[in-house]
Nucleic acid binder design. Sequence first.
DNA 1: ATGGCTACGATCCGTAGA
Length: 254
Amino acid sequence: MKLATWNVNSLKVRLPHLTDWLQAAQPDVVCLQELKLEDAKFPRDELAAAGYSAACSGQKTYNGVAILARTPLDDVQTGIPGFEDEQRRVIAATVGGARVVCLYAPNGQAVGSDKYEYKLRWYAALREWLGSELARHPHLAVLGDLNIAPEDRDVHDPKAWEGQVHVSGPEREAFRALLGLGLKDSFRLFEQPEKSYSWWDYRMMGFRRNAGLRIDFVLLSPALAARCTACTIDKAPRKLERPSDHTPVIAELA
DNA sequence: ATGGCTACGATCCGTAGA
């Protein structure tokens, strides 16, 4: 079983890339972020033709998340229970015996800003919720754009980024708190190439210079981590014309 | 030099992303 996550940065613009990639990569479950479209405009028919059913929680212009699967999606839930939020950042569903949580974490804009405080509050609520989800669902997979680079090796230029949003101490603590629940960063279960990233700035030829961050993750509960045989970053879609600034991350489960 | 792209929804520029 292949589980993947991809921040597509506009599903409308990236739909051709997505359908080509589904064909090439053959994932079983795909978590998408930054759809930037309302549910009424979700391309359900095109994705069904590609062999995927979908659950989505979209909004105009900003945010928006979806889960695609080759098999039916059950018990779909949106948002973090008890955390009031207009922004569509969270969707969960049961698929193939696993509980799958798809996340688009807040960006945070700048350390100390209102958006940064919102990011930390969002993470505090997320941690509480995922703790109870882990107790309820031993087979839990948490995928998405977490907008935190957890360690310096996940940052192309740690000196330049020091103290900035995405790498600040409180953000890294929030990430570690998820691992503290028992979730495993599946990418780090395996030998990986140095300077592996999942996002590159559109500006300054970020991709060509490999000036990136690793901010997209497949986190697995202990039971699923034990079944994980690989986790890879697929850079192919980032090389296309008009790419998303993020590229897919894929975990394989035996 | 705090910019540089890209998407969006509004106009021919502002907001947001990371």
